[in-house]
Amino acid sequence: MSQIVNVHEAKTHLSRLLELAHQGEEIIVAKAGKPYARLVPLAAEAPQRRPGRLAGRVDDAFFAPLPDAELDAWEGVR
């Protein structure tokens, strides 16, 4: 559920409003009674990819063509 606050209240209680936003609540800042901005929590950062982390775990057999029976199973052929 979102909470609507005016600009003056937002300036006065910014720390508290930021904490509420961090906890997942949406805060709408209104100017002259009209919605003007929204405080929402930031999305979690995606983990960094690490190239080469499977080095030595995947051999050439992984890249070998699949047998016809398995290809048929993937394609839904009976």
Rank of each mutant, 00 (worst) to 15 (best):
A37K: 08
R78H: 10
L39T: 14
D59G: 15
A69F: 05
A10V: 13
Q3V: 11
P35Q: 11
S15Y: 03
A10C: 06
P67D: 14
D60E: 11
H22S: 13
A44C: 08
A46V: 11
A32G: 12
L54N: 15
K11Q: 12
A10E: 12
H13S: 10
Q48W: 02
A55H: 13
S15Q: 07
D59C: 00
A46D: 11
L71G: 09
V40R: 13
T12S: 05
M1N: 10
D72A: 13
Q3D: 09
P47W: 02
A21N: 07
A32Y: 06
D59S: 08
A64Y: 03
L71N: 14
L54Y: 10
P41V: 09
Q23I: 00
P47N: 07
L42C: 06
L17M: 04
R78Q: 13
A21W: 09
H8Y: 04
D60A: 13
P35H: 10
L18A: 15
D72W: 02
H8G: 08
A10L: 00
G56R: 01
E75A: 06
A55R: 11
D68V: 14
T12P: 00
L14G: 10
L20T: 09
P51K: 06
F63N: 15
L42I: 10
I28F: 07
E9P: 00
A55W: 01
E70Q: 15
V7S: 12
K34F: 01
D59M: 01
D59K: 01
D59A: 04
H8W: 03
V77N: 12
Q23G: 12
G33C: 07
V40C: 06
V7A: 10
P41T: 05
K11L: 09
A44R: 11
T12F: 01
A30C: 09
A61H: 04
P65E: 12
L14A: 14
M1S: 14
G33D: 05
P35C: 05
K11V: 08
L39P: 09
G76Q: 01
R49W: 08
L42P: 02
A69H: 14
S2A: 07
R38K: 15
V77K: 15
Q3N: 06
P51R: 10
G76H: 09
D60H: 09
S15K: 11
N6F: 02
A37V: 01
G52L: 02
E45P: 04
E45R: 08
F62N: 07
L17A: 02
P51G: 12
I4L: 07
A32T: 03
R53Q: 11
A37D: 07
A10P: 03
P67C: 11
V58F: 09
A69N: 02
W74L: 15
Y36N: 06
L54H: 15
R50N: 10
P35W: 03
A64I: 03
A43V: 06
I4T: 15
G52E: 03
P41S: 12
R38C: 05
L14D: 04
A73Q: 07
E9G: 04
T12V: 04
E45S: 10
L14M: 14
R53S: 08
S15I: 03
P47I: 09
E25P: 00
V58N: 00
L66M: 11
